[in-house]
Nucleic acid binder design. Structure first.
Lengths: 264, 264
DNA sequence: CTAATAGTGTCTGTGAGACACTATGGA
DNA sequence: TCCATAGTGTCTCACAGACACTATTAG
């Protein structure tokens, strides 16, 4: 039987007795990814207090008792970067602003010893943003930076030092989510400014996947997928060469057939 | 034991002050899916106490302070069904027993009002199991049942009554995860007994997707994908007709190219 | 025999990858 | 002029879907 009424034993209490339950702290952590200078980068903040004082960590913070998880992630994002990401209910919490900043729940990490001081369960969220001017962390610019994920992954370290807590694993999971999700969705446009060229979108795929794609086949593929790109009418030569058409993200979210990530 | 010292300033406390944090209850809920009689079914338990007394709900329970999330899900699964699912660390917590029972984290649900009594954050997990004899809920068989998801979804109700809490949405998310994951992984074998035929595997796909697949093309596809199926040598006529080769699940987890789910 | 399922072979259309070729700007 | 990038056309191979046909059991 599931129900036990003794409230003294934390591990064996009634399943839904509201007066006695094991108390957890719940936080949100953010994997904020962008493409800068042909490289996939993640936002890191420097910890100012123990434990892991002086280590780089993912931005995040406590969930308040009166706010939802996506709401908390959104608030932390705004507090630490000034970005605004709108969340709305859906099949798995996913949000996207008109500007293209994308927020979705990633996974939850709750190993009993992941925080040495107390039992913390962290609901990690993934944010995909276009290239941003420069990070600010609550006004303190020196304690936040964009770090290329290639330096962070593999060894899971930053300047030779691992990230705080289990943030190396969370970051790796977030990067893998982003890499696989741009295969079958139009999410790569979240890394682009409101108007972008096919070449700029291709460079996003190349940076996220770390590969080189054939420009001609890529062009044929993305312009031939209905709903992926909407021509905005204008052109630009900001990449040099022949003027390129400008596009905005189309309404389609799922790409069928998907973009294929080349094998190693 | 963790003590909350400052209960007055819940919303504005220091990010990592261990002596003061908003206290949450953390639970795991389980979306346990199986294929019975050509139908995708989910395990439900009947609630014996308020709120939602008498309603059907997903199995689940509190996470203990000394166990991880997958561990808690595993324990609840064993307590409520007798199944054993092994969990191990990986990119997003995923586990699979030799017998094929598969456990993975699904998503986390933490709307402030999802439980009317207190603030509960629930980490939902997805379990895929082969057809099982009959459910038992801690020995109380009358309070657990397999319900076809077709009756539960769409209207998100059961016998005309919705599931307790937000379990209708959690179930819908779990079913969608299962439906999409058998496209590009060999996870459909988790619904099969240790040895199975190509026809039995095809009926799993048909039940989960709710479609009819061409037996010849399906056979060519799955037997032609390296690492998906391993011939076990034996044959069976349990489905009638010509004896069919028996297979076990191969080592491959990702199918490339994927199985294609037919359009409506 | 018939019924049922298992398994193979063949054709066709779609689309990805490779790559030649043309188009249009700037230095 | 050269050089860079944009964009089109064409060929080939892989593979999904449709479906004819054979194989092997039970009844």
């Amino acid at each position: 039987m599931i129900i036990v009424r003794e409230t003294t034993k934390i591990g064996r209490m009634s399943r839904y007795d509201p007066s006695a339950f094991p108390p957890f702290a719940v936080t949100v952590d953010l994997v904020v990814l962008t493409v800068r200078d042909h490289e996939l980068c993640a936002l890191l903040v420097k910890r100012g207090e123990a434990p892991f004082q002086g280590y780089w960590a993912l931005p995040g913070g406590f969930v308040r008792l009166d706010e939802g998880l996506a709401e908390a992630a959104s608030r932390e994002l705004a507090e630490e970067t000034g970005l605004r990401a709108q969340s709305f209910p859906g099949s798995l919490p996913v949000g996207q602003t008109p500007a293209g900043v994308h927020l979705e729940q990633l996974a939850t990490y709750g190993h009993p010893q992941r925080d040495p001081r107390m039992r913390v369960v962290s609901v990690a969220h993934l944010v995909l943003a276009p290239d941003l001017p420069s990070p600010r962390a609550g006004g303190d610019a020196s304690s936040a930076r964009w770090a290329p994920v290639s330096e962070l992954l593999g060894e899971e370290q930053c300047d030779g030092v691992p990230l705080a807590f289990d943030h190396g694993r969370i970051l790796a999971d977030g990067v893998e989510r982003a890499r696989s999700k741009i295969e079958y969705s139009s999410l790569a446009t979240a890394f682009c400014p409101p108007e972008f060229t096919v070449g700029e979108l291709r460079r996003v795929y190349e940076a996220v996947w770390g590969v080189v794609l054939d420009p001609r086949n890529f062009h044929r593929k993305v312009t031939g997928t209905p709903g992926f790109l909407l021509p905005s009418g204008g052109t630009t030569t900001r990449q040099g060469g022949r003027p390129a058409q400008l596009f905005t993200a189309g309404g389609a979210t799922l790409l069928n057939p998907p973009m294929l990530r080349p094998e190693p």
